[in-house]
């Protein structure tokens, strides 16, 4: 096979993967939305006479150590993962892009201060800091989102700052200034649209990171709370019963992995489309 065709095949495969990932994510969003219709049992309803039922029959993915239906729990957990992923990225992205624009466009003391805070933030072992903060603040959806947003804003500052520095020197910015546009107008109308593309690509990967972060915190018992089903929490409970019920840990684990994998291939695909120079 000649190399031109080989790279064409690669690209084809890559985009097909991205498409497959996109379809999976769409199904996930739909299933999270219609969780009450798709579930076959109350996800928190315990029934000890039905514990450790293997997959099949009335319970397609089996039941856990408390007799709860694994399929229903997996479907409901998707709501938590998607909510946390979207909310954490929205908060981190808004704060990060705003600070990055200010930092890159205006420079000077403000830039030094923001860059210093970002470097300090990066020095922290993220998960350890997240565990400590949630442990001191207490578990819960809001606190988890807050902690994950704290861990995510630096990436946006870096991307936005670099792009703003670059755009600042371009002639259309100079032209806008010469035409009498205010600084605020130059930033919002001329610089901001140019940082959007890398920010969108970064956001896909950040959603994946936030979803893993939430699952990790829930796995350690510091997530959204034990009463709410979540993939990480399901894994944490099921790991003590591996010999009795492999399905109770395997399906939530598979759900996290497929979700993260789908987001990653969609992100790769978006990057290829937006910025072909970065194609690997």
């Amino acid at each position: 096979m000649n190399s031109a065709r080989a790279s064409w095949w690669r690209r084809f495969l890559r985009q097909r993967l991205a498409a497959a990932g996109g379809i999976f994510l769409a199904l996930l969003v739909v299933s999270a939305f219609f969780a009450p219709l798709l579930s076959i049992a109350d996800p928190v309803q315990q029934n000890l006479s039905l514990r450790f039922q293997p997959p099949g029959g009335a319970h397609p993915l089996g039941t856990d150590h408390l007799g709860r239906d694994v399929w229903s729990r997996v479907v409901y957990s998707g709501r938590i993962s998607l909510t946390v992923g979207a909310a954490a990225v929205l908060v981190a992205g808004t704060v990060g892009v705003a600070l990055g624009l200010v930092s890159g466009f205006f420079g000077g003391r403000v830039d030094d201060l923001i860059s210093w805070i970002a470097t300090v933030q990066l020095a922290f072992p993220f998960l350890l800091l997240a565990i400590a903060v949630v442990a001191f603040l207490g578990p819960g959806l809001g606190n988890v989102i807050l902690v994950l947003a704290i861990g995510g804003w630096v990436g946006y500052v870096r991307v936005t700052r670099a792009k703003a520095l670059e755009v600042r020197e371009r002639s259309f910015v100079e032209a806008a200034r010469a035409a009498g546009a205010s600084e605020a107008r130059v930033v919002t109308r001329h610089v901001f649209p140019n940082v959007l593309t890398p920010v969108i690509v970064l956001s896909t990967f950040e959603v994946a990171r936030a979803i893993i972060g939430e699952a990790a915190l829930s796995f350690l018992g510091l997530g959204v709370g034990i009463a709410t089903p979540s993939w990480g929490g399901m894994l944490a409970e099921a790991k003590d019963y591996l010999a009795e019920a492999w399905w109770a840990s395997t399906f939530p684990g598979l759900a996290i992995m497929l979700t993260v994998l789908s987001i990653n291939v969609v992100g790769d695909g978006l990057r290829d489309v937006f910025d072909p120079r970065l194609r690997t």
């Binding site: 994946a208 893993i212 699952a215 990790a216 796995f219 990480g232 894994l235 944490a236 099921a238 790991k239 591996l242 492999w246 840990s249 395997t250 684990g253 996290i256 992995m257 993260v260 994998l261 990653n264 291939v265």
Partner: peptide, 18 residues
């Protein structure tokens, strides 16, 4: 490599124990 990058450590650990 793609699977490895998408695999959360806590699930991989549990899976290896299993």
């Amino acid at each position: 490599a793609l699977l490895g990058q998408s695999m959360p450590v806590f699930w991989l650990g549990v899976l290896l124990i299993l």
